[in-house]
Design a protein around this nucleic acid. Structure first.
Lengths: 117, 117
DNA sequence: CTGTATCCCGCCGGATACTG
DNA sequence: CAGTATCCGGCGGGATACAG
């Protein structure tokens, strides 16, 4: 049987869910240009809570999109980096970001039109 | 100021959220090859509830991605179709679907590895 | 610095029933 | 057929406190 995201039981549905996750997209985007520390990620992704950042990173790590390397030092230092699989996603999510910024105006205009009637 | 999805107050963050919505992606994908009736959508998107389908369609309509046309007939017939803006998104979400199906195996393998240690 | 561990509230979203 | 209305359980996710 061929993968079909329209079938609720297919794993590809879950993969789409992960890609669709708002924080996952932003984390992948942030890691696109190289490894980052935990604190750097927290700082650059505005509005993410500590809990959600950790949770998102664990999910990405579990799915093989991100590696987590702990440096034995004091204070501790943890680096997160995209895997090959993770990098293969960058173009896609960058495309999403580009689309969002490009068409933001049109979407906002459409919303204004929709709301005032 | 330039659109920045990393800024929590920027509208592009909301646009990304909409794109990221699991049901929105599937609805756009379903409408990619032409207009569909409400019932057709409900049938093709396995697992979506009536409430979520309506809610998702309203959101997409509000954002100017989908048009809703009511035909005055008995029984009533309502068609949903992608707008030009909506079509500009199809390639992107189709890319997501392609990525999901292509790399499904790798992700599942990574998960199995992660869970058994 | 990089996390866990709770508490807890809001709202997402399914189930069900009703309407034009 | 294509919705709207309502109820409500589950959990996403923020705040806070604590640990290695």
């Amino acid at each position: 049987m061929e993968p079909d995201p329209f079938n609720r039981n297919c794993g590809s549905r879950q993969v789409i869910d992960r890609i669709g996750d708002r924080w996952s997209v932003l984390v992948v985007l942030t890691l696109a240009d190289g490894a980052k520390r935990y604190g750097e990620l927290a700082q650059r992704i505005d509005g993410i809570s500590q809990k959600m950042l950790t949770q998102t990173l664990r999910g990405l790590e579990r799915d093989g999109l991100v590696t987590r390397t702990v440096h034995a030092s004091v204070p501790p230092r943890v680096d997160y980096e995209l895997t090959g699989l993770g990098h293969s996603l960058v173009d896609l999510v960058a495309g999403l970001e580009a689309w969002a910024t490009t068409h933001l105006g049109e979407v906002e205009a459409a919303r204004a039109r929709y709301d005032t009637r």
